[in-house]
Design a protein around this nucleic acid. Structure first.
Length: 474
DNA sequence: TTTTGAGTTGTTCGA
DNA sequence: GTCGAACAACTCAAA
């Protein structure tokens, strides 16, 4: 065991409970670590001020520090990963490259090419399950097919789970194995990567493994209230760990193990959310067509509206529906949107404005710090009724009812739509219903200081039922 | 093969 | 205001 290996970090920016790193140090005498700021991904980003690049960079800095503490270093490259990784592997004369599975179609294609290059040079490419508990075909129906409905999938997932599946990969083997590269390596600055600073530092979003730890420790104190609070955007209900799960700065096994061990309604409800994560990754893996098309092909025939002005109003948070606007402004200002509001705003775009879910999905992909293709796509198709939902005809949200139910005091709305701050809790959900005197008292003129609703919900609902009715008769 | 129960997060209507 | 049923009406997964 004198040979060396390279561990390629991607969406797993941590130095503990890491499948690829564990297997590498167990097998090889010398282990190098690398991360590539992939220009294929970076160049496709529309905005040069992107919170995620900053988040990744901060997390990479911390990861490098932790690896140094263990005798290693993180080699950071800026270029095309397809080229950089095989090149680095040759330069370091390793016998194998280790990485964790990535299920996104572009990543699958990239990894296949990297593997091909490496094989040609006599270098092995070994990859492991890491970011989910069960992947690919590990959880199947009795008929041997992938589940397409969540609840039976969840039941089968829970039935299959053993302590073994959430066991942490130990770090004991690291000792003396991690090695710095035999050349100088420096971390590119944000500017060198071609990006500008964002407001990330101003947001309460701690980065890296240490940031994940802070959020997790805080959530542990609140988890018993999770089920109760999770639907109310003004409350501190969620774990806020999505971005850390996205970039692997926390271990999914650790979270699942904790939820199981903790038990109770809060932890069970949160565990379900973690199972949704596995579910949508499995769906993407088995049905990659969902990236560009409806999960159910018959819904590709839906005739969506071409309405760029309405779409722009939705993006900017000026639809005239306060909860929708508050949600979109939260997204634009912070890169985060509460889960309940993701459903409300997605339902509004697809069912009230009749706009193709793909446009909304793309906008979320641009804005969300925790953007994950599998989960975002699954969520949008669910909201648009084109996806894995057993009861799609039930899903037309009433933006006013949702507002009254989940932000009854208007607390969340006031936070992001200050124009309406002085409206009463009763009127804030549909401010256009205020009379002239009431508007005057609230210090807002609807139609001037805050927009009138851009569509009538009742009419839009009718149009949506017709839109879906048309394809049913085909 | 046929049957049966159930389906993340809803809305509306009428008593 | 509250409650239950109906709703636009179907598919999945297991028995």
């Amino acid at each position: 065991m004198t040979d060396s290996a390279l561990v390629w970090f991607r969406r797993d920016l941590r130095d503990y409970d890491h499948a690829a790193l564990y297997h590498a140090v167990k097998t090889h005498a010398r282990v190098y670590c690398a991360f590539v700021f992939d220009t294929e991904i970076l160049d496709a980003l529309e905005c040069r001020a992107d919170r995620r690049i900053e988040f990744i960079r901060e997390s990479v800095v911390e990861l490098d520090g932790r690896l140094r503490d263990r005798g290693g270093r993180l080699i950071v490259r800026h270029g095309r990963a397809r080229i950089e990784i095989p090149r680095l592997a040759l330069e370091l004369a390793v016998s194998a490259v280790y990485a964790n599975h990535d299920y996104e179609p572009l990543a699958v294609d990239r990894d296949a090419e990297v593997e091909h290059h490496l094989r040609g040079a006599g270098i092995e490419f070994r990859h492991f399950k890491d970011q989910v508990i069960f992947e690919r075909s590990e959880v199947l129906t009795q008929g041997g097919r992938p589940f397409t409905v969540f609840t039976p999938y969840r039941n089968a997932w829970l039935k299959k789970l053993t302590p073994f599946h959430v066991q942490s990969y130990p770090v004991a083997h690291y000792a003396g194995r991690l090695a710095p590269p035999p050349f100088d390596t420096a971390l590119p600055s944000l500017e060198e990567l071609g990006f500008q600073r964002t407001n990330l530092g101003m947001l309460a979003l701690p980065c890296g493994m240490s940031g994940a730890r802070i959020l997790f420790d805080d959530f542990v104190e609140r988890i018993d209230e999770y089920k109760m609070r999770r639907d109310y955007p003004a409350a501190k209900g969620p774990s806020y760990l999505s971005v850390h799960l996205r970039f692997g700065t926390i271990s999914p096994r650790e979270l699942v193990a904790f939820a199981i061990h903790r038990g109770g309604q809060g932890a069970d409800s949160w565990l379900s959310e973690l199972i949704w994560r596995d579910f949508y990754h499995m769906i993407l893996d088995h049905f990659p067509h969902v990236v560009a098309q409806s999960f159910r092909p018959e819904f590709d025939a839906l005739e969506w509206e071409d309405a760029p002005d309405l779409f722009a109003a939705w993006c900017d948070g000026r639809t005239g529906y306060p909860l929708v606007d508050a949600a979109m402004r939260q997204l634009n200002q912070t890169g985060y949107m509460h889960n309940r509001l993701r459903m409300v705003s997605a339902s509004f775009l697809t069912k009230d404005l009749g706009i193709d879910w793909r446009l909304g999905e793309r906008y979320f992909a641009r804005q969300l710090n925790d953007y994950d293709l599998a989960a975002n796509n699954g969520g949008w198709q669910w909201a648009a009724s084109t996806g894995c939902d057993a009861q799609p005809y039930f899903r037309i949200f009433n933006p006013i009812t949702q507002s009254e139910k989940f932000d009854s005091a208007g607390e969340f709305i006031r936070r992001y739509v200050p124009e309406l701050a002085a409206c009463s809790a009763k009127q804030i959900h549909a401010p256009w219903r205020m009379g002239g005197d009431e508007q005057h008292a609230a210090g807002v003129a609807i139609g001037r200081d805050y927009p009138l609703p851009i569509v009538d919900h009742a009419l839009a609902r009718g149009r949506t039922l017709e839109r879906f009715g048309r394809i049913r008769k085909l």
